[in-house]
Nucleic acid binder design. Structure first.
Lengths: 335, 335
DNA sequence: CTGAAAGCGCTTACAG
DNA sequence: CTGAAAGCGCTTACAG
């Protein structure tokens, strides 16, 4: 049995109330008592029981974080941002891998509720109505990261996807490209899919370049589908000179497929990605891409969450700055 | 206020003991009572409080997992394996990012202890004596993954690093290579560093190839140092025809640097990596590498941990099978 | 089959 | 400055 507050009280010859006071730095005891208590704690190796504390305080100092896949470079970078802030502020984080599965997500929400987490971070997925409903029932604060929603009491932290896509494509245009293809993410994804498609189209239109649907191929942001989509592009739009990929993985896929076809990047084909994962530095050639500050996004969303937990005040949403990281996959057209 | 067991007792007109019994599927009530209780639970939307349960049961259904860096492809794949098994068996997992920092690790151990986790998984790092000491004090089971230690009451799950390195190098030799360099991990790392160096040396010796220290360059398993080490190799051992890299990231670094120098992989230089991260499929050309089954390692270590928690019996360690995944970075010498 | 009561390890008024 | 007591939301003997 681990020693309890009772044991230290007995050892120090005081009441448990007094022990509790010195443990919590509350006022109301002499220096001598304090010393006695600390000595007793030391001697018997006492550690407070956070569960008992949690029961009475109605605070567990624990938050939950939900990801579609924890094992992606994308999610795990956000996770690290969350974890760092949480740890520095005395919170623990329990991770939940939803596999983008509704049932699993709901089950998790249930578990987190029973475990009395103080708050929740929800990442990278659409906040379905049923999630929203249970979340509201749970009566705990939560924040969205790398996603957003229409309810305005729930803050989100993300990049402006439309604008970021627009900027990427405009960057390509500024370099003289006009035959620009889009390696798109999921077609009906309202968060990361549609806005990036719209940004792509808008940039072309603004520069008087007609949108050609055969210059758009769809994947699911991951490498495998990126390869397939890239193959399509190469057959349907063989004259393209540049590609905007809606994720770094798809951009890397484009590089791979191009290599397989003997197409030189960036000499014959320019490619710009999206995310700036660690991956981007490692490709050959290193990938030019739109950076999302994932660590910072995780960090800030955790900060907002903890603030909401502690103040019980609402927090506002935050659009993070994106930027274009120039590496070596884009080259002026015709040079 | 969330409804408690008291509220449902009142609503159902029974005692809280009875509610507790039906909630826990214990014997001792009529079907009619059971129905009444369930109806009450339904009506008031009752959810059990796991914290109160944990206090009395001395079980929190929570485990801790410690990684040097959660955000690496390596750690996060293990994490997913752990998380999957935990979730399927009713456990939650709290993640800890130690940054390989002793103070931070100790602080975490403290927190996990106070939060009364039922067990712990410790990943990828040497289990220092002070960690071992606190862990023993905590009196909870724990298992090591992707690392090992000399205490034989603590089970580990890992690959045979020496053998895996040996096999990788022998694979290169079988393909006719004799000028084989090693892109090593940290020199004094007793887990992933030394055994792989020894495996490399042993394979050479077994095949009558003298070990030449200028064919060995050191990094820390990551991309950046991999690039540096590769540059060294190229200046000190310009005649090498093959490289065994102690991690996929370093292998990718070798590919990048080779490309920069106009050296063709695999035509002029063969490279074999170590890990088989998702990364390995994405390089150009796709990386031949030694596979560690990271997901399975995480999964199994979690299974062992939960079994230890539930049975209070010791578990044995497990050496996982490695294998060579042939992709396109190795070619017979001279072909 | 069912309930009253003790207790898990704490915190927090309340009283002195 | 200090302690006795109630209570957080449960589970579990014990008694009937």
């Amino acid at each position: 049995m681990n020693p309890t507050i009772k044991d230290v009280a007995k050892k120090a010859n005081v009441s448990i109330a007094t022990v509790s006071r010195v443990l919590n730095n509350l006022p109301g005891y002499s220096d001598r008592t304090k010393a006695k208590v600390y000595r007793a704690i030391e001697e018997i190796g006492y550690q407070p029981n956070a569960i008992a504390r949690g029961l009475i305080n109605k605070r567990t100092q624990t938050i939950g974080v939900m990801f579609p896949t924890v094992s992606s470079l994308f999610s795990s970078e956000i996770l690290r941002g969350v974890e760092d802030f949480a740890q520095d502020n005395g919170y623990s984080v329990v991770v939940c891998n939803t596999d983008s599965d509704g049932k699993r997500t709901l089950k998790y929400l249930q578990v987190l509720r029973e475990k009395q987490v103080d708050g929740l971070i929800f990442s990278s997925e659409v906040l379905k109505d049923e999630y929203y409903k249970t979340l509201q029932q749970m009566q705990i604060p939560y924040v969205l990261v790398s996603t957003e929603c229409q309810y305005d009491n729930v803050p989100y932290v993300k990049v402006d996807d439309f604008q970021a896509a627009y900027d990427a494509v405009e960057y390509l245009i500024r370099y003289g490209h006009r035959k620009i293809a889009l390696l798109s993410g999921t077609k009906h994804d309202t968060i990361a899919g549609i806005p990036r498609i719209e940004g792509y189209k808008k940039a072309l239109e603004q520069h008087g370049i007609p949108v050609n649907e055969s210059y758009i191929a769809y994947g699911d942001f991951l490498f495998e589908t990126g390869c397939k989509a890239m193959e399509e592009l190469l057959t349907h739009a063989p004259d393209l000179t540049a590609i905007f990929a809606a994720s770094d993985e798809m951009a890397i896929a484009a590089i791979s497929v191009a290599a397989k076809h003997g197409i030189k990047v960036p000499d014959e084909l320019s490619i710009i990605g999206y995310d700036d994962l660690k991956l981007a530095r490692m490709s050959v050639p290193p990938l030019t891409t739109v950076r999302q500050p994932l660590y910072e996004m995780g960090n800030l969303s955790c900060q907002k969450l903890i603030r909401m937990i502690q103040t019980e005040e609402p927090e506002s949403s935050m659009i993070m700055d994106h930027s274009i990281i120039e590496r070596q996959t884009v080259r002026p057209f015709g040079s």
